[in-house]
């Protein structure tokens, strides 16, 4: 298998669609009504993991001095709650659970990036017996996941904009912001760009970072995989291990940072939606 095919194969989702949507040439699904089963199943499995772990913890909560897992969870909750308190004006009981969900879920989905790139696909290929079985293990390298969250947040932004400012206030924001009443057409364009860029930047940033990270992992995996023939393996295999370890350690930082950025920006955007516009 060549380098290009290796990478393409790894970046191909396990898609399910109706028979008419399959491209007869490539054999891949096309069109909107396609479901990326690997993305859906892994992300939902991670979500279920969160809920189960939380439910298990919830059964033996300790009120006095918590230890171990509860302590760690409380640490995360405290951290997220602190972020919300610091950046979110006013009170909204939805914001903190939303931020917590984003942080934990995105982090877990990103974490799938740290699993060796070939491990799960190979396992799946062995289990199914299909050597061309597609499996993309990191849900956040699928634009659908990141945009799903970004669009959900965007919907909340619009909802709270209208709820807090009122329909007229929301319209006024488009008309008189940022340059006052003499630039109304210009203002509409500006505000529109400003608002639309929020979900786009949220979704694309996470997707881009994780996709690029995954790509680097694949390239590192290629060092040993395709170049280690014969005596050269003595050099290439340790290099791959070293580079893989280096990128892995760096990536621990990246996945946490990306989850954190997504969370903080969500809080900030919703905070902006909750503040009244000053009249120009």
């Amino acid at each position: 298998m060549g380098t290009v095919e290796y990478i393409q194969h790894h970046l191909q989702n396990n898609a399910v669609c109706s028979v008419d949507s399959i491209n007869p040439v490539t054999g891949l699904c096309e069109g909107f009504w396609t479901f990326n089963m690997d993305t859906i199943l892994i992300s939902i499995a991670l979500g279920v993991l969160i809920v189960l772990a939380a439910a298990r913890l919830g059964k033996r909560l300790e009120t006095g001095a918590p230890s171990g897992f509860q302590n760690a969870v409380e640490g995360v909750l405290d951290f997220v709650g602190g972020q919300v308190r610091d950046t979110f004006p006013g009170k909204n009981p939805l914001i903190a659970p939303l931020a917590l969900t984003i942080f934990v879920w995105v982090w877990l989905m990103n974490f799938m990036d740290l699993v060796p790139v070939d491990l799960l696909p190979l396992l799946a290929q062995m289990v199914t017996g299909d050597p061309h079985f597609h499996l993309k293990v990191v849900p956040t390298t699928d634009l659908n996941t990141t945009m799903a969250m970004a669009l959900s947040v965007f919907a909340l932004i619009i909802f709270y904009n209208i709820k807090v400012k009122g329909l007229w206030g929301f319209t006024k924001m488009f008309l008189f912001h940022p340059f006052g009443k003499f630039f109304i057409p210009f203002n509409i364009v500006m505000t529109l760009i400003e608002e639309v860029s929020k979900p786009l930047s949220l979704g694309l940033r996470l997707f881009g970072n994780m996709f690029a990270g995954e790509l680097v992992f694949l390239l590192i995996a290629l060092i040993g995989g395709t170049l280690a023939v014969g005596i050269g393996a003595l050099f290439w295999a340790p290099l791959q291990a070293l580079l893989g370890l280096g990128w892995l350690i760096f990536h621990i930082l990246v996945i946490t940072l990306q989850a954190f950025i997504f969370m903080v920006l969500t809080i900030v955007y919703l905070g902006m939606a909750h503040t009244e516009m000053d009249d120009h």
Partner: peptide, 16 residues
């Protein structure tokens, strides 16, 4: 972007 997006939105809302 495909219909996965819709599933992910539902999953996200439920998870919240």
């Amino acid at each position: 972007i495909n219909a996965t997006l819709l599933i992910q939105i539902i999953a996200f809302v439920l998870l919240i």
